[in-house]
Amino acid sequence: MNTIRVGVNGYGVIGKRVADAVLLQSDMDLVGVADIATDWRIKSAANRLPVFASTIEAQQAMRGADVPAQGVLDDLLAQCDVVVDTTPKHVAAGNLERYRALGVKAVLQGGESHSTTGHSFVAQANYASAIGRDSTRVVSCNTTSIVRILGALDAAGLLLRARGVLIRRATDPWESHLGGIMNTMVPEPTIPSHQGPDAQTVLPGLDVVTIAAKGAHTQTHSHYWTLQLTREATRDEVLDALRAAPRIAFIRMSDGLVALNSTVELMRDLGRPRGDMWEVAVWEDLVTVNGSEAYLAYQVYNEAIVVPETIDAIRALTGTVPDAATSIRLTDESLGMRQDFLTPAEEPDHDR
């Protein structure tokens, strides 16, 4: 089987992680990464990856900064089957027609609207509907977590409706010197917040409402959910539904994982690249079921959670792997994803 030739346009928080994940896939080749920057980020990339300039102006700037650009974006695209666009919000939408004109399939990120591609993607929910398309949009970090968690319960026939509160990080850690929220919390100005309707672009039948606020921290998001179940259920039934789904891992306060920072530190101790957590981390000892109501809390590592979805989206667009379970297994094994960070266990069968 021929490997999928992949380019990454935008070498920021998501782009650099996607590039490294592509390098780990036996069925993909990373052609290169493109950007307009000439600072430490792209210089570090140039030490180990082929670098291209996203514009003519950027190419000139890279030459002046001694960044060895191998060409411009069109030179990169001419060698690619798929481009992953991780440029800032709304930039990718303007690039899409260029990709289509060159016959290059495109994976966009959650900063773009659903209407840009007409398809939004989470591997466990709608992989099949992306097969052969010219483009898709991997939904945002929070929306990805919602589809993983609520989708697992919905697939088990347990979920009737969901109401969630999200406490979002103020900014990415590497940008915290540029400003952010200090000593306050800022509610999003509308209810529902955008994450619930966004999840419905992937799971249209989901009865979900989200409320969100930005907090005065820079690492990861936290979610709190009140769930109306379809019937009276036990706690074990809810946990089993979550365990049957991919990319959900369990943490416990009884292990000392009592706050967002402790989980971030755990990822570093596990040797995760950049301290990344690609899974949704559910506090197992907080999962509570009372008759037909359930309550849970979980953590979302916003810098990393969409990376495995992006890898699966590449396979879906090219049609090289025809089913979600196989692609998810390939991706998760390459990254070393876990179902429990502290207790090794036999991985579940996700062929469902």
Rank of each mutant, 00 (worst) to 15 (best):
Leu286Cys: 11
Val107Leu: 10
Val238Met: 06
Phe52Thr: 05
Ala69Asp: 02
Gly164Phe: 06
Ala162Met: 06
Ala249Val: 00
Arg235Gln: 15
Pro192Asn: 11
Val321His: 06
Asp351Ile: 12
Asp27Ala: 14
Ala313Cys: 11
Gly64Asn: 10
Gly118Pro: 04
Glu279Asn: 03
Gly196Gln: 14
Gly32Cys: 04
Thr38Met: 00
Val67Ile: 15
Leu153Tyr: 02
Phe341Pro: 00
Glu347Gly: 11
Thr144Gln: 06
Thr210Lys: 08
Leu260Ala: 04
Gly164Tyr: 02
Ala19Trp: 00
Thr116Trp: 01
Met267Trp: 06
Ser193Cys: 15
Ala170Pro: 02
Met337Arg: 08
Ala304Pro: 06
Gly94Ser: 10
Arg352Tyr: 09
His223Gln: 05
Val258Lys: 13
Pro50Glu: 05
Glu232Ile: 04
Glu279Ile: 02
Thr218Gln: 12
Ile311Phe: 02
Gly32Pro: 03
Ile248Phe: 11
Thr230Ser: 15
Gly157Trp: 12
Val72Trp: 01
Thr184Gln: 13
Ala213Glu: 12
Ala241Asp: 05
Thr343Val: 14
Val282Ile: 13
Glu112Gly: 07
Arg329Ile: 12
Asn290Lys: 10
Leu266Asp: 02
Ala53Gly: 02
Ser254Thr: 13
Gln109Ile: 10
Val107His: 06
Asn9Asp: 08
Ser120His: 10
Gln219Val: 13
Asn2Asp: 13
Ile251Thr: 09
Phe341His: 10
Trp283Glu: 11
Trp283Gly: 01
Pro189Cys: 03
Ala297Phe: 05
Gln25Arg: 14
Val72Asp: 08
Gly275Gln: 02
Glu347Asp: 13
Met253Lys: 15
Thr190Phe: 15
Gly12Glu: 03
Asp255Pro: 05
Gly179Leu: 10
Ser222Pro: 00
Thr326Trp: 14
Ser140Ala: 15
Arg243Thr: 04
Val287Pro: 07
Asn2Ala: 14
Leu76Asn: 07
Ser176Met: 05
Asp198Phe: 10
Gly336Phe: 09
Asp198Gln: 15
Asp29Leu: 08
Asp276Gln: 08
Leu159Arg: 08
Ala101Arg: 12
Gly205Ser: 11
Thr184Ile: 02
Trp40Ile: 11
Asp332His: 15
Arg137Ala: 03
Ile42Ser: 01
Arg235Thr: 15
Thr86His: 00
Ile305Gln: 02
Val202Asp: 08
Ala92Asp: 04
Asp332Glu: 15
Leu150Arg: 00
Asp35Gln: 08
Glu309Lys: 03
Gly275Asn: 03
Val83Arg: 00
Ile167Leu: 10
